[in-house]
Design a protein around this nucleic acid. Structure first.
Lengths: 188, 188
DNA sequence: CTGCGGTATGAAATAGTATAACATCTCGGA
DNA sequence: TCCGAGATGTTATACTATTTCATACCGCAG
């Protein structure tokens, strides 16, 4: 994992092409395994599978979409009488993953996205493209400082900052997208 | 969802005491009337009533709470067989109020709060107290600049920034509150 | 081995949030 | 008078999340 010289985390998601997502997933899972092992927490098969689904793209995914995918039998299994997993199953897995810092919740989308840097401090800053749906996590010191300074001035004790910036990502800007096209969402 | 001390005086907008909330509401409604008049938009009785309910405290209120209050007959009316208003009624009113900039949606709470400065630009920055539930809107240039500069660096075109900082407000910090006590919410 | 406790998952029901689709009403203007 | 636009009523449904109780699995003390 190369370190960018920027203050801002490397823009993985908005890096137009040259992004092998298969290895992107693989690396995320590898990091997760290592992290949980080092912490003595249990990354069970179910949780691993949910994490994999969350990482299936850089677009935040809803809990019920995960549920659907969970139901989909793996290649080689019969379609048969697959019992439908219940919501708590996926929500519990997500809770675990969030606790471990492996996944973030995107409040403005009621959806979940994988975290690049599960070890780092979690400021939780996201740039979310309304066109392609991709969410880029960043860790910008400038924003964090501005926030902290503002809070200090007010005497407010920060516990959990939520920063989710909706807009159009560089790729989509280049391709002339100004409209949703993503059909994504109500309040936007 | 258990309510915290519903009837106790509310610490308003972090401005410890000396806050006459009645006039706070009145002023907000006055501003709204003036604004809509100047724009030629219709602040109907229903919308005015919803706005009033949103302003009933500085704690963000859910759409269904508004609905309940809407059902409650005004003093002087008979309890009778009041027809229950349906969700779309309140959501539509909220949509209008949000469009007019009179109300903001707090994504992380699925709730709504009145806006102090309906005319000003809406950066949408909130400090939300997890103890007393109060949400303070602010318009901090430092935060806005940091965000803008970061977006520029990335080539990201900002459309709607969402900044919601969860924590403990000065009043509650002073009274030694470190725990929720507000029971408000799931993902916290 | 057996039972115990802790953690993880299964399963059913329900709570909470939001929208779709269509009907009706009202009011001003052609 | 009729039309059209905007606001609201009404019914149904979709989507998101949690509560509650039951069961399974695993490591370990007795």
């Amino acid at each position: 994992m190369t370190r960018s010289s920027r203050k801002t985390a490397r823009p993985v998601a908005f890096a137009a092409d040259g992004h092998d997502h298969m290895s992107c997933i693989a690396e995320a899972l590898q990091r997760a395994v290592a992290l949980c092992e080092s912490r003595g927490t249990q990354l069970t098969e179910l949780r691993r599978r949910v994490l994999e689904l969350v990482w299936s793209s850089h677009e935040p995914i809803g809990a019920y979409r995960i549920l659907e995918q969970l139901d989909r039998p793996l290649p080689g299994q019969m379609r048969g009488k697959a019992r439908r997993a219940a919501p708590p199953t996926v929500y519990r897995a997500l809770d675990f993953l969030i606790e471990q810092g492996l996944v973030h919740r995107i409040e403005s989308l009621n959806a979940f996205v994988g975290c690049d840097q599960p070890q780092a401090t979690h400021a939780g800053q996201f740039m979310i493209c309304g066109h392609c749906g991709v969410a880029l996590e960043l860790n910008d010191a400038g924003i964090a400082n501005a926030l902290a300074s503002c809070a200090t001035r007010l005497g407010f004790k920060v516990e959990r900052p939520t920063i989710e910036v909706r807009g159009i990502c560089p790729n989509c800007v280049r391709s002339g997208a100004t409209q949703p096209a993503h059909a994504e969402h109500r309040h936007g």
